[in-house]
Design a protein around this nucleic acid. Structure first.
Lengths: 338, 338
DNA sequence: ACTCGGTCCTCCAACGTTGTAATCTGCGAG
DNA sequence: CTCGCAGATTACAACGTTGGAGGACCGAGT
């Protein structure tokens, strides 16, 4: 039923190994033979069986991308970037959603799915530095995002502290002084939330503005709904503020909506800036200023690193760290004097 | 280096076939033997090699999801729904982005990646009914979305005409009479755009409102940017209107933004309703009324159909068609008398 | 004429698993 | 005490491919 190399070989009058050589671009093949084989492949509609290839060669041409949740626009766009970068390298992407659950992340790293995959891109959310042991696996692995630095693997991420600092400075430069740090995770030091809070504090300090604990708002998950709820609770306290540094765009948008319902004008009464530059920030009312974390660059470098690990062995060279450039994107939500 | 069934078998003192039987839940195994094997698996950290399994059994446990683009929120949410449904069935999902390009869609259906996959969920965008031949493949295939009806495969989608009709009637019921049909694709009859336009016209006719060609606005791609541009061009013509039936949420949001910039109050001056119920419609200002197409149901049924095809052979039973229930979600953008 | 190195191609085994069919054990019925 | 049968396990081959090694051919250098 299915067409194999044997069929192609027979039709082309060569051995199956020659067919294999043609398919794999082996250099010593007579142009004439190559043509004959390609013609046979074409006429039979042959496609290589990737399971067999994977079994024999140990390579499947598939990499896994472990992310919390595609519903979150940031991760959807990250997945998009990764898939484009992977496609350029001839790799397919198997996405695994782990919902930010610890057990699921570990399972994804160690489960049987992994033997079917040449490498893993893992956007860490649930694990932290105490889990470094979990990262020691035979499959090449590249980490995305924060939470684990100096682990045993390559790590590609953004300049979190600097980005948050730039966002904060941007609002401070407009004379805003009571800036809400929106999206904190209490006790977290090393994750995105922790680092971005550091950048926020650095900016305040550099500007000589005193840090006010009551302006730090915790938002558990970083979805729009959580942002809306976090802002609702914060407004209920009646604490005055004139700006919001949100640690991601989704919660910024959720918060903006609640602020507007409460009659707060953006940016006149309070400026807002987010993080991630997801697509919709361009089209909201007002459009949302944000930090572009260099997602395409992150994806490209991460796939590149992974490819090198796949080619050279998971632990052939020491772990690398790459920090992509960020960019502050000024939109209506933080227009000076707006 | 890697641990195989042989290692497990040796440690447990059984044959490798028994290990295989345990792994595959074969019914006739002494509980004691099973326990011994499981213990060996555990202590060695054995995971089955899916390439080998795939080669031998013809099943990989992976299905492919072909979609245009994850950046489009609708497809990101669809992918999310599909992955959850698939995970419940023990299937992993390999997403292939084809960017709405014809060649890429065909390649995805026929390329070598397909031999590595048990079945395909294909959200049709570029192909149409003249391409039905392309759909005749050995791999089980379930179609999502419009464009191809009565093809050789199962087809799961929504009630497009009825949904669009309900959306239109909703605005008509408020006394709106000059409703823009936003997102048309000229000449397309059978795709989402074509069907939704039919629903729009049906509703007008039922209400005795004359159809006005000048209120039909073409929007090529259904991204936010295209919606913004389409509305900008439409407004430039100065044609009066009091409502917008947008054929998807993304273009509705892009359009809303442009309308607001132009000083049009929503819903006071013009009501807006979209299609898809993507997450962000809840948080925009104003929040967007929309048609929930039953995405989870579509995903669940599609995966179910596919699983049955995988179990029973791609062409074991005649093609089925399933239309999910839709729901009209009324939000601020179409509040009566708003 | 003989060797050598480069081309081009083929043979064989192996990757790790599961389908098929065969074997073996015990136990109750005849 | 044998037969039959269900339960439990195993031997063997096969899935389609590629790595490794080797063979045949050919022209050039000695």
């Amino acid at each position: 039923m299915t067409i194999t190399m044997h069929d192609v070989a027979k039709l082309a009058g060569v051995s199956i190994k020659t067919v294999s050589n043609v398919v794999n671009d082996y250099q010593y093949i007579k142009p004439e033979t190559r043509a004959r084989v390609l013609e046979a492949i074409e006429s039979l509609g042959y496609t290589p069986n990737l399971s067999a290839r994977g079994l024999r060669s140990g390579r499947t041409g598939v990499i896994s991308l472990i992310i919390p949740d595609l519903r979150n626009a940031y991760f959807a766009e990250l997945a998009d970037s990764v898939m484009r970068a992977a496609a350029d390298e001839g790799l397919a992407v198997l996405i695994q959603q782990v919902g930010g659950k610890r057990a699921a992340e570990i399972e994804a790293l160690h489960g049987p799915r992994m033997t079917n995959v040449d490498g893993i891109l893992y956007s860490v959310l649930a694990l932290d530095e105490s889990d470094v042991d979990q990262l020691v696996i035979d499959t090449p692995l590249v980490l995305l995002g924060e939470r684990i630095f100096n682990g045993p693997t390559d790590h590609v991420t953004m300049h979190n502290i600097e980005g948050a600092r730039a966002a904060t400075e941007h609002l401070l430069a407009q004379g805003r002084r009571r800036l809400v740090a929106f999206g904190a995770h209490p006790g977290e030091v090393i994750g995105s939330a922790g680092l971005r809070l550091v950048g926020y504090r650095e900016a305040l300090e550099a500007a000589g503005v005193e840090f006010d604990e009551s302006l730090v708002v915790t938002v558990g998950n970083w979805h729009r709904a959580d942002g809306a709820e976090g802002m609702r609770e914060f407004l209920a306290k009646g604490i005055p503020f004139d700006g919001v540094v949100a640690f991601n765009d989704s919660i910024a948008l959720g918060a903006m909506r609640v602020m507007q319902d409460a009659g707060i004008r953006i940016p006149a009464d309070a400026a807002v800036i987010g993080f991630d530059d997801i697509d919709e920030t361009r089209y909201t009312l007002p459009s949302l200023s944000t930090i572009n974390p260099g997602r395409d660059e992150i994806a490209r470098v991460a796939v590149q690193y992974l490819k090198e690990r796949i080619a050279g062995g998971a632990h052939s060279i020491p772990p690398r760290e790459y920090l992509a450039d960020f960019e502050l994107i000024e939109r209506e939500s933080s227009h000076a004097g707006g």
